[in-house]
Amino acid sequence: MVNLNASIIVALLLFGIGTLGFLIRRNAIVVFMSVELMLNAVNLLLVTFSRMRVDLDGQVMAFFVMAVAAAEAAVGLAIIIAVFRKLRSIDLDKASLLRS
C-alpha cells in the first residue's frame, strides 16, 4: 500500500525543486522544463487526493492538466524559437527589450 502522506511530501518537494529551477536558470528551455516539473508535482498531488478520497474527479483534473500542458508546450516552444530568431540567444537576461 502506498503511503499517501509520503506521496504528498514527494509532490511538495518536486514543486520546490521546480520553483528553484525556475528562479535560478537563465536558459529559457530549462526554465520551461522547470515549469513542467511544477505541473507534474500538482498532478501527483491530484492523483494522491483522488486515491485518498476514493473519487475519480482528481484523475480527470490531472488529465486536463496534461492536455493543457501539451498546448502550453507547443506555444511556449514556438515563442522560444521566435525569441531566438530575434536575439540569436535563449538567455532570458538578454530578452529585455521592453526595458530599454
Binding site: 511538495l12 514543486f15 520546490g16 528553484l20 535560478i24 540567444s89
Partner: peptide
C-alpha cells in the same frame, strides 16, 4: 546561458526553501 549570478541564486534558493517549507 547557465545560471543567474550568485546573489540572485542564493535569494532564489532561500525563497524556494521557504516556500517548500511552509507548504
Amino acid at each position: 546561458p547557465a545560471f543567474m549570478n550568485r546573489r540572485i541564486k542564493w535569494a532564489a534558493a532561500a525563497l524556494a526553501i521557504v516556500l517548500t517549507g511552509s507548504l
